[in-house]
């Protein structure tokens, strides 16, 4: 038995196929989704989605954020911005990280919304750079 994985971006359905296990980057930490997982809705932080068939990773995607809905039989990922890890450019990722860090440093910690957005961006940029080093 496998989980029916669906990855959807606002512009199109990117992928729909069964997978033995999916590791998704939840805001509270990575989650391994196996069949018969309890129903769950979570937001995603910037990080890598790993799709397992058996014991091996078949696909890796970098997602900048989004949401995932999990039920016993399926796992739906609503991604903000998604890209195959193989297509990521390490130099670009480093530049993104530097920029996010600069914005983060200037953000007023008392402005809750702005602070949240800046820290989300920083985490996403870190995740991107991390993803490029684990192609």
């Amino acid at each position: 038995m496998a989980t029916n994985l669906e990855i959807i971006s606002p512009e199109r359905r990117l992928l729909a196929k069964p997978a033995d296990m999916v590791v998704i980057p939840g805001t509270e930490g990575d989650l391994g989704i196996l069949p018969d997982h309890a129903p769950l809705i979570t937001s995603l932080r910037g990080g890598t989605i790993e799709i397992y068939q058996g014991q091996t990773v078949t696909d890796r995607f970098y997602v900048s954020g989004g949401f995932a809905e999990v039920t016993g039989t399926r796992c739906t990922i609503l991604a903000d911005d998604i890209i195959n890890v193989a297509d990521l450019d390490p130099a670009q990722a480093q530049a993104d990280l530097d920029m996010a860090q600069a914005v983060y440093d200037q953000t007023d910690i008392n402005d809750e919304t702005a602070y949240r957005i800046a820290s989300d961006r920083l985490i996403a940029a870190e995740g991107k750079l991390y993803a490029t080093s684990h192609k």
Partner: peptide, 27 residues
């Protein structure tokens, strides 16, 4: 209707989901 577990929590998730939902509807 399925009872979902929610992570991080209802409020935070909605804070993120609502603006997103708005964008999706406009789109």
């Amino acid at each position: 209707p399925v009872e979902y577990e929610v992570e991080p929590d209802d409020g935070t998730l909605l804070e993120r989901l609502l603006p997103r939902n708005l964008a999706v509807q406009i789109y």
